[in-house]
């Protein structure tokens, strides 16, 4: 039987087959959905594990306290106890292997994050003792006079 229908039909079927083959090759095998269904969680399921494997860099104060117990005890007795070690010394990552030595933030700007005087009503910032850096020993590093681990003990 000869009909004009067959040729375009073969073409359409061929294109469909091509599309399905391309999709089969290109789309990762673990594409699927989580509990939120197709609307919110249609994704490559393996990606969740990729994010879980991301490197942790900030290890927390507990990581420091065994080897640096003297410094830990010192700062824990001060009002700076609320500041975690890594806020001033940088992320531990794999210290002591990598990096072997951690940094010390000694520039004035670092202390001014809290101690620049901003007398803001309705903010806790106004309760922190602060300075105007242009008037308070301009240029001198804060740690020349103040020990950041023992801020309550007056001047060095």
């Amino acid at each position: 039987m000869k009909s004009h229908v067959w040729r375009p039909l073969y073409l359409a079927a061929g294109l469909l087959a091509l599309f399905l083959i391309a999709r089969y090759i290109y789309v990762p095998k673990d594409f699927g959905t989580g509990e939120r269904g197709y609307r919110y969680s249609f994704h490559r399921l393996g990606n969740e594990d990729e994010w879980k494997a991301f490197k942790v860099k900030y290890k927390g104060t507990e990581y420091c306290k065994d080897c640096h117990s003297d410094k830990y005890q010192q700062i824990m007795r001060s009002r700076h106890a609320i500041i975690s070690c890594e806020n001033c010394h940088g992320p531990a990552i794999d210290h002591p292997e990598n990096p072997a030595k951690l940094a010390k933030e000694t520039n004035r700007e670092h202390c001014l994050r809290c101690h620049f005087r901003l007398p803001y009503p309705t903010s806790g910032r106004s309760a922190i003792r602060g300075i105007y850096p242009g008037e308070h020993n301009p240029g001198a590093p804060c740690s020349a006079c103040h020990n950041p681990h023992k801020p309550q003990e007056g001047l060095r």
Partner: peptide, 27 residues
């Protein structure tokens, strides 16, 4: 109801079962 997830045309951003919206950097 993450608007960012609804508009993604390729399924590269999604909500994990614990509610966190993640982005698939490869996709």
């Amino acid at each position: 109801n993450p608007a960012c997830v609804q508009v993604c045309p390729v399924g590269a951003t999604y909500q994990a079962d614990d509610g966190v919206v993640l982005i698939d950097r490869k996709w």
